[in-house]
Design a protein around this nucleic acid. Structure first.
Length: 556
RNA sequence: UGGCCUAUGGUGUAACUGGCAACACGUCUGGUUUUGGUCCAGAAGAGUCUAGGUUCGAUCCCUAGUAGGCCAACCA
């Protein structure tokens, strides 16, 4: 699998065989700074940056900032930090807006060659003349303006003498082309928004199609990779390139791959923005968001995201990847890296009757069985401890390996205990369980008893020596497997009302050393990361993902 | 009354561009284990959208269907 190439690599290898100079290979990642990056972008980022790595080629980060209306410096900053966080650095940071003058000059050239004209109709009129995919369009009444008139008008547009919507510059191609994009596409419009970089220097802004290929050409990008929906744009991309390309230079090649779709989530910036603006989530980095920053805050690592998109592959067919693959990837990575910690979320009190009142004993517990170099830590063992309520049953089902009356169980890293007496409260719920412990069964003591096998091993925490923490657990934001098919206004129908739940828990003392961004495996529970918003007295942990659980599956 | 793209187990991706379909996730067994985690061993699961054709032989080439996707923003 590692040695099999995806179709993009095959194309590149063929180009190389056909004489393309390997030193001329150059890639780019071209986001528009109008939102935060999401998992789908991770695929594009990994594809392009890994290609650059594989072929020792250059790669630029280019902001496609041609529509100031929704663009913002904060998005530029977030995008840069997200790409860096993934572990990538670019050769050059570029902006399409750096090329506004060049693009403008080239437009004048198009006008002079009778390949562009100023249209003074309304956008509705233009749309109506465009025809439909099945019917040809009609020529604009302004299509035959002279080069002089077009030049004059276009200059007026540039100088701010035209209102938005009054005139646009259009490429003169073919109003009856079967490809709608070739029916005299608009290449410039007047906008009165302030641009995050050029501010008010420009009031005419080039459209995507006119900008993208020419920017690729300016940067001498050899392979311009984009998603499938841009396939119809390729003909236009090539037409625009034809107008300016110099035979001695690299002619960029647009190729399209299928975007990554994740089940139960959306990857549309517009829809993600809707969630943010309507406070359905707590900002772009809400741990339920499929944004890179949300995934990071949720506890996903760069390595896990990279291995995920690699496992998903690169091809040309529509796909929906199951969440379970993403979860597998984080668990795989976190299992190797995270220290284990004992945390009890829904406690039940265990009193060890054959222990002295006030007994305190330090135990040595390993931090990570997968990584001996992670060392050990100490845990306090006391007369009363807390275990998870679901780890005790006074009426155990078959194959219940946990604590039940008359049964033995090991407290992880400590002793084997036996349940003798169940104390109920007035409502008839279990309040406390009295146990006895086997003093010779101490973990790691080397005694016969310490090696005794019992069916169950439970995590626990001293009932007196522990700290309080807050846990935030997340579930899918959408109940529907493919929420992408719904318009934002209908999200309320498919939103999961229980996508976040908050609770408190008791953690072992060692946890007080945790710092923001630290990830742990809460033994037998899952992986958790300390949130940035944690107060010093009551740390908040976001649950990244559960451990695999064959028992729960069986119980269902 | 159009153009373009795609079609392989539940999901995703492969198959040296013609030689009896592989890998990963998921599912199920069993073993190991002081996490019902990890790890290890194994199993089930598609005969490659359909119908023709070329060929000794087709997932791969051709033809015609069928299904799905994209294209009518002064968005990218």
């Amino acid at each position: 699998m590692n040695d099999s190439r995806n179709f993009i690599e095959i194309i590149i290898d063929q180009d190389l065989q056909n004489g393309l100079d390997p030193d001329k290979l150059c890639f780019r990642f071209p986001p528009e700074p109008n939102g935060f990056l999401h998992v789908g972008h991770v695929k594009a980022i990994v594809l392009n940056f890994e290609l650059a790595k594989k072929y020792s080629a250059k790669i630029n980060l280019r902001f496609d900032d041609t529509n100031p209306e929704n663009e913002d410096q904060k998005y530029i900053d977030a995008i840069k930090s997200d790409v860096n966080w993934l572990g990538y650095s670019w050769d050059e940071e570029r902006y399409a807006s750096d090329y506004f003058q060049q693009l403008y000059d080239w437009s004048l050239k198009l006008i002079n060659e009778d390949k562009a004209y100023v249209d003074s109709q309304t956008s509705e009129e233009i749309a109506n003349q465009k025809g439909t995919p099945k019917e040809p369009g009609k020529n604009s009444p302004f299509r035959n303006r002279t080069a002089e008139e077009n030049t004059m008008l276009f200059k007026q547009m540039k100088e701010g003498k035209a209102e938005p919507g009054q005139h646009v510059l259009r490429a003169k191609i073919d109003m009856s082309s079967p490809n709608m994009l070739m029916r005299d596409p608009v290449i410039y419009r007047v906008l009165n928004a302030s641009h995050p970089r050029t501010k008010s220097d420009w009031v005419v802004f080039p459209m995507y199609d006119w900008t993208h290929g020419e920017s690729d050409y300016i940067e001498q990008i050899s392979h311009s990779l984009c998603t499938l929906e841009f396939k119809p744009h390729r003909e236009l991309y090539d037409w625009f390139l034809d107008q300016v390309v110099d035979k001695d230079k690299i002619r960029p090649k647009q190729r399209e791959f299928a975007r990554l779709n994740l089940s139960h989530t959306i990857t549309s910036k517009r829809k993600l923005l809707y969630l943010v603006e309507n406070n359905i989530v707590d900002g772009w980095d809400d741990p339920r968001m499929p944004t890179i920053s949300g995934l990071r805050r949720r506890g996903y690592t760069p390595e896990s995201l990279k291995s995920f998109v690699r496992a998903a592959g690169v091809a040309k067919r529509e796909n929906v990847i199951e969440m379970s693959l993403l979860e597998f990837c984080v668990r795989e990575d976190l299992n190797k890296k995270c220290n284990r910690m004992m945390v009890v979320q829904n406690p039940i009190k265990i009193t060890i009757t054959n222990l002295e009142e006030g007994h305190e004993e330090m135990l040595i517990v390993e931090n990570n069985p997968e990584d001996p170099s992670a060392g050990n830590r100490e845990m306090v063992f006391t007369k009363t401890v807390l275990i998870e309520r679901e780890d005790f049953s006074d009426n155990p089902p078959k194959k219940f390996f946990r604590l039940s009356p008359g049964n033995e169980v090991r407290l992880k890293g400590a002793y084997i205990i036996k349940a003798n007496k169940v104390i109920y409260n007035k409502e008839g719920f279990v309040d406390e369980v009295e146990c006895t412990y086997d003093p010779k069964s101490k973990s790691g003591s080397g005694s016969e008893e310490s090696k005794r096998k019992v069916k169950g091993t439970l995590h626990w925490v001293s009932s007196t020596k522990n700290i309080h923490i807050t846990i935030r657990e997340y579930d899918r934001l959408f109940e529907h497997p493919s929420p992408g098919q719904f318009p934002p206004e209908e999200f309320y129908k498919i939103l999961n009302p229980n996508s976040m739940s908050v609770s408190t828990a008791r953690a072992e003392l060692e946890m007080s050393k945790a710092k923001t961004g630290d990830s742990f495996q809460f033994q037998r529970k899952g992986y958790y990361i300390m949130d940035k918003a944690s107060p010093s007295q009551n740390m908040i942990f976001n649950k990244t993902v559960s451990l695999r659980d064959n028992w729960k599956k069986q119980a269902k």
